[in-house]
Design a protein around this nucleic acid. Structure first.
Lengths: 187, 187
DNA sequence: TTGTTATTAGCACTTGGTACTAACATCAGT
DNA sequence: ACTGATGTTAGTACCAAGTGCTAATAACAA
């Protein structure tokens, strides 16, 4: 045995999770065992055959097509909202959001969270950012949990504008602040 | 013939686009023709077999998983740059960048392009956005090609600040403008 | 030595096809 | 009515990537 059965099965699981498009034959070559052994392994691990795996991936896309887009509309997770008044969202900064060089979050992610919260708080189908004045007060790092609060401070129904103040904090400290001028269709 | 060949093939295309998981046999039943006819139809229409269709759907998910997460790396393609002076980038707005509801590009994508260009133009390892004053002049839609120009307008070596003006245009018309205040380590 | 577990081999069968050949059916034009 | 083009159906051999099953062999431990 090149490896123990357990080891092989562990690696097998990982390999298939990583790349569901791999055939039993490819796996057999990779692990230097027979195709039959791979099949037995899949049985024991209750891993479906290639075609089923691919179908699963594909059908999940089809489900997600309806679900993931609306979720995507907001950067960060909204945890509280009172339309036309205030809203609160959380955004966990991960490795993929920071500059590799210095580990500091890229500005546009903080902006994205703030901006989408500003859009979300407005009780209207159409809300667009017209103007924004923003300040990056302190650098944010991977692992930080950014809590962002948007507050509607002014509403001009004639001009169809709404002014929103947004403040983002990490551990109570302000890291980002901005004033957003939003346009809306319904006054 | 229940329908003409053309009609059937038209419906066939639509059916498969709508539900790529349908087999030739199901299609044959649905259109009251033989499986062979369906196969010939697929040939003429260059529609791949079920398994290939499913694989396509599945692999697109896998591509997207890599593509959709990086709202991070370089937003837009930098086509010209003179460090500490000016830079130019192009960003093609696609379906995934706009609000489903109204087809207008979400503000943070335009901001992201402008912001990363501002970061890129600075000849320094560490460049951070401190403050930004931005205006979304006109809505941008899917299919638009946004050309963004960043120009360094002021540099304070003592305060380690650099002021950059950014203007984004679509077909020569300004759609976004901003002033970015950047911090840098090397004066 | 015997028993257990692990591995390999081989065969028949399945799905959803491809590739190819051949037989018909239908209708249009002359 | 005959010919030809087009459309449809049938049938065969073959393929990939399996399942399900039986049987042989290897490795090791008690």
């Amino acid at each position: 045995m090149r490896r123990t059965k357990k080891e092989r099965q562990q690696l097998l699981s990982e390999t298939i999770v990583e790349n569901p498009f791999v055939t039993d034959e490819q796996l057999a070559t990779q692990f230097q065992v027979s195709v039959q052994t791979i099949r037995l392994d899949r049985m024991e691990l209750a891993i479906p055959e290639l075609r089923e795996r691919i179908k699963d991936v594909a059908s999940k896309t089809y489900e997600n097509e309806v679900k993931s887009l609306p979720i995507d509309e907001v950067i960060g997770e909204i945890i509280d909202i009172e339309l036309d008044q205030r809203a609160l969202s959380i955004f966990d900064v991960k490795e993929e959001h920071v500059f590799q060089r210095n580990g500091i979050a890229r500005g546009h992610h903080l902006f994205a969270q703030a901006n989408s919260l500003a859009v979300a708080v407005i009780n209207d189908e159409l809300a667009l950012t017209v103007h924004a004045n923003i300040t990056f007060v302190q650098p944010v790092h991977a692992g930080d949990r950014v809590i962002t609060k948007a507050t509607v401070v002014e509403r001009d129904e004639v001009k169809q504008r709404t002014k929103i103040e947004v403040v983002s904090t990490v551990n109570g400290e302000t890291v980002f602040a901005g004033e957003f001028d939003m346009y809306r269709t319904k006054g």
